[in-house]
Design a protein around this nucleic acid. Structure first.
Lengths: 253, 253
DNA sequence: GTGCGGCCTCCCGCTACGTGAGGGTCAACC
DNA sequence: GGTTGACCCTCACGTAGCGGGAGGCCGCAC
């Protein structure tokens, strides 16, 4: 059982070197190795490769692909949905370009020569869109989200450990304040909220108060996040959310 | 008049560095320079840039773009037509991919896990197409045509001169044979046809007999080629075509 | 005349591999 | 059991298409 590099390469239509490369950079390592050092790919590896190739085809840098595939709570279906969405956007853009080319052909056959602006405005119009709204277009997310991905994608294992440790300390402190009966809009809670915000800014992205509020709301709304807090103390998630809001309100007044 | 690098960059939505690069590799050099060495781009340069960006967007390597833009007898309209064609193919491919993703989603929600072949067959099916028929897809041409482009793109002016001289000699010899009353399926004519084929193989691409037959047919069908032969002697084009066919028939029997 | 933005030319760095070199591995076939 | 040929391994250097600075000249305003 399992597949050799050559088999996988033929199946997927890539070169062996490409698979070696993906192994090197940790994007797609074989599940096992034989005693003699041969790579053995499992079915799960193949599925991963499928997604890798898809995102690559859509122009994503490999580093980013690694991040989005490793992102917790993302399963096959969400990836497929996202890929479908991306494909549709892409098709739309190409259609616009085709229409622009048609216009250019008309203009050309009619002997009209385009002004320099028209030249790129008419069918190079997809470029500004690509720059200003690229992050948006790709992720339906925010610029901060992108920034986060990039930064965190470059973190070493050590960085992750320290990041996690810091996060754990803050959570612990919140739990203490909560169980200790301190109000969510009190000094201590707000202090912790501010610390939390600083923590995010340091490690992930420029966390404004507005974004921070959104995060707080998300914590209570999204079970995956709540799962990180509730074990400490029932109701802690809501407490943290309230503290964040109180802190943001104070800071912006 | 004319545009500076910065202006062109903003117009076209690329960086100054990119324009510098295109200048370096000779893909897109400014029509002029100011006394102080500043680049000055003309309207013609802008049009060229427009096409460059388009082909680039469609995934063509810059070297190839240079060749197809410099290829004689290609005007704006033919490029626009080609671009439109390429866009449509591209859209078609993306649609296939989208359909494949939909199927994958169905399979996934139904709890069916794909076999390894299906995984890439189902929606990686565009890859064989991309390899085996890429030249076809891109050019509506043959692999030999591609090979030709590559080789001829790397020829120096000297090479071109020798190439042209050789070609002229062969044509001259054909004209002599023709006006001398030698039959198109005679020894001499076939000898010249073989020489012609060797000439192409040496300079352009591996010219099989089948391709050679196609070339002969094209010579009579396409006025641009005929224009090269007819001035030597009226009917020469047809004569050459017949000689080529006779030679090919003999060689393959 | 002194900024300040734009332009110039190196030149090094990055990604996603291509392309050998040099050398083990494995199944088959004699 | 030896040899052959297809396949595998790990370096390690090369390439395309730029990004991004360094160090320095140009040109126009104040």
């Amino acid at each position: 059982m399992g597949y050799s590099v050559g088999q996988v390469a033929r199946l997927a239509g890539v070169t062996v070197r490409t698979l070696h490369h993906y192994d090197e950079i940790g994007l797609m390592s074989p599940g096992q190795r034989t005693a003699s050092g041969y790579r053995r790919y499992t079915d799960a590896d193949l599925e991963r490769l499928q997604h890798v190739l898809f995102y690559r085809e859509l122009g994503f840098p490999l580093e980013e692909i690694a991040v989005i595939l490793d992102e917790p709570g993302s399963d096959t279906l969400t990836h497929l949905k996202r890929q479908h969405e991306l494909l549709n956007r892409r098709i739309g853009r190409l259609r616009e370009m085709a229409a622009a080319v048609e216009r250019a052909m008309e203009a050309n056959t009619m002997g009209i020569s385009l002004t320099p602006e028209e030249r790129f405005e008419i069918f190079g119009d997809f470029r500004p869109e690509e720059h200003e709204a690229e992050a948006e277009e790709r992720w339906g997310g925010t610029e901060a989200f992108e920034q986060s991905r990039r930064r965190m994608g470059k973190m070493t294992k050590d960085d992750w450990a320290r990041f996690a440790a810091e996060a754990a300390r803050t959570t612990e402190a919140f739990a203490e304040a909560f169980t200790g009966g301190l109000p969510a809009d009190g000094e201590r809670a707000m202090e912790l909220a501010e610390e939390h915000r600083a923590h995010i800014t340091r490690w992930c992205y420029d966390c404004t108060y507005e974004i921070h509020r959104g995060l707080g709301d998300m914590y209570v709304a999204d079970a995956r996040f709540a799962a990180n807090y509730e074990p400490h103390a029932a109701g802690l998630t809501q407490y943290i959310r309230d503290a964040i809001h109180a802190n943001a309100d104070r800071a912006e007044s």
